[in-house]
Every structure is written in structure tokens, then in C-alpha cells.
Amino acid sequence: MAVLDTLTSGLRTLGHKVIEGVWRIGFAARFFFAVLMYSGTAFRRFNLTIREIYFTGVLSLIIILISGLFVGMVLGLQGYDTLQRYGSSEALGVLVALSLVRELGPVISALLFASRAGSAITAEIGLMKTTEQLSAMEMMAVNPIARVVAPRFWAGVMSMPLLAAMFSAMGVIGGYLVGVKLIGVDEGAFWSQMQSSVDVRLDIVNGVIKSFVFGIAVTLISVFEGYDADPTAEGVSGATTRTVVTSSLAILALDFILTAFMFRGVG
């Protein structure tokens, strides 16, 4: 009997979780449409969005640039180590550039963005809710989705591709420094092989599209978790954690899906 009870309660918990999850997805979708619908203000009064680009984009600049440089340098070292075994160390440029532009640039910069800017967005909106600032705004006949959420959303969506591009560029420079300046791979071969193998539309544009999609996902999760947070200290801290966890999982899952579509049948 006890086993049956445990089983029933287990099933009930599972059912409850599923229903809650589905409900939350529906709620998030409605929230997304509301953000899009009330985006007029974010563009009409673009200085609101510019301000948020400062807080999400500019303040993430240092971490993105430094991480990009180091990731590129590590790629240079590891790539050289592997490639020279097959006597093709000139292909180092290709390896560094393709891994960065296709995968590491968009993915790592999105992960960093989620933990640097996404968590800050969630905490800020959550605290505004906790201290009744959002309610106060509503009572002052100002829609908080239009005034607070939409500018942050668009700022994140616009910042993300730029940050990813900077990450990739810094990474290529890092790979160049280690590969060419430190190890001594031929400079001409490094750049020319890179240029002949990296396709602008196929690799670079697809990388930008990826980072754009990640930007939408991360900022949407961030503003949603903030807006949906329980108006308590624990609620906000829980929401901040959820932002980082959910965003990271979303980035990796979306990356798989996008890669499967983009590079299908490409050698």
C-alpha cells in the first residue's frame, strides 16, 4: 500500500510539474507578444533603449573582449598541437576562425551575456516589482512592459550580435598572436587559408543569426523571470538563478537545433 501511495504521490507531483510547466510556457509566450506589442516606446524614445544598451552591452564589453582573447589563444595552442601531428599546421587559421565564428563566438558570448547582463536585468526588474515600482508606474498610467521591459529586451537583442562579433574577432586575434607570433606558423598561410575556407554567408552570417537568436532567448528569459518573480528577496534571488540556468540550457539547445539546420549537408 505504501508503495502505491508513494507511486500515486510521485505521479501527482509529476503531473503538477508538467501542468505548471506548460502553463508557464503559455504565460511566457503571451508575455513575449505583449513585449512585442508594446515595443513602440522603445523605438520612439530610443534614448530609453540606448540607456539599457549601456547597462547590458557596454558593461559586458570587458568580460567579452578578455574571454574572447583567451579562448582564441587556447584554440591556437590546442589547435596547433593537434594539427602539427598531421603536418597541416598552416590550417590553424581555419580551425581557429571556423570554431569561433560558427560555434564558440555566439555560444560562449551568449553564456557570458546571460550571467553578466541577464542576471542583472532579472534582479533589477524583480526588485522594481518587489518595491512596488512597477505597480506605481502602472498607477501613473505608464505601462511597465512598454517603459521598463521592452527597452531592456531590445537593448539585449541588439547588443548580443555585436558582442558575439567582438568575441570572435578578439578570438581570431588571440589565435593569431599565439599561432603566428608565438609558435611561428606562417603568417601568409594562416590568413589565406582562413580566408579561402571561411565563407561569409555560410559561416559569418549564420554565426550572427545564431547570436541574434540567442540574444532574443536570453533577454526574453531575463525580463520574463524578473517580471514574474515573487515580490520577495528569495523570489528575486531564485529568479536570478533561474535566468542563468534556463538561459544556458536554452542557448545550448538552440545551438544544436540551429547548427543542425544551418550546416546540414555542408562539408
Binding site: M128, T131, E132, Q133, S135, A136, M137, M139, M140, A141
Partner: peptide, 15 residues
């Protein structure tokens, strides 16, 4: 609502 003003419990100033 533009014709209403509301004072929240702890002020709810925009921080």
C-alpha cells in the same frame, strides 16, 4: 489613472 495619484506604502520611488 492620469487623474489619480497614489502614494505606495514605502514610497515606491524609482531607485
Amino acid at each position: 489613472r492620469r487623474k489619480m495619484g497614489m502614494l505606495f506604502q514605502f514610497g515606491a520611488l524609482f531607485t
